[in-house]
């Protein structure tokens, strides 16, 4: 009986489905991770040291060529989306335009996207200070922060976005189950 049990365990351990590893792949170096990891989550843990304000951002919005595509102060009219709402403060966020620096639930998403994907043709070249300043400027033109507010690693994740808590969290996903119970299939 004992040896049978032992054999069963040995068989399980030998089975390839049971967490077999192959020792393939090499450890990532800290230097590689610093260069590669550009993800900024809502907590802002990964944000780099740096600072910026709307006052500096407005100059960058011109010098980096943002105006050419997004229009003056992000008012639109060019080939890229407008970045400033045309609707007044009395209009609820969900009835306003779908503009990233207006309706994103976290200011970190704005920083992350500017830093990774802007400006077109020179993506990924902005310094941390430039990304803080451009984020501050776009939040300022959408009346979310005052012109002189300093954004940095500490203050950026704390910015209260207008949408607040008023958005749906994604439900848990389970394999082999319908996406929405009771949906007309």
């Amino acid at each position: 009986m004992g040896s049978l049990k032992f054999a069963a365990i040995a068989l399980l351990l030998a089975s390839p489905v049971l967490a077999q590893t192959y020792g393939v792949g090499r450890p990532t170096t800290p230097e590689e991770l610093r260069r590669l990891d550009i993800s900024i989550g809502p907590t802002g843990d990964e944000l780099p040291v740096g600072r910026g304000t709307a006052t500096e951002g407005v100059k960058l919005f011109q010098s980096k060529g943002c105006i050419a595509c997004h229009g003056k102060a992000g008012a639109g009219g060019g080939p890229a989306p407008a970045l400033q709402s045309k609707k007044g403060p009395e209009v609820p966020t969900w009835e306003k335009e779908h503009i990233l620096p207006l309706s994103a639930p976290f200011a970190t998403t704005v920083w992350d996207y500017i830093h990774r994907a802007m400006p077109v043709g020179n993506e990924g070249t902005l310094t941390a200070d430039e990304a803080y300043s451009l984020t501050a400027y776009l939040l300022f033109v959408n009346k979310i922060i005052p012109e002189d507010q300093v954004l940095d690693k500490q203050s950026l994740p704390k910015v209260k976005m207008p949408i607040g808590d008023d958005y749906a969290r994604l439900p848990e996903w389970k394999p082999g189950t319908p996406r929405l119970a009771g949906y007309p299939y």
Binding site: G41, P42, L100, S103, P105, T109, D166, A168, L170
Partner: peptide, 15 residues
């Protein structure tokens, strides 16, 4: 936790 990347923001829903 959910990272709310730009692509994720595109899926933002109220309901």
């Amino acid at each position: 936790h959910y990272y709310m990347n730009y692509n994720d923001y595109g899926h933002l829903d109220k309901e």
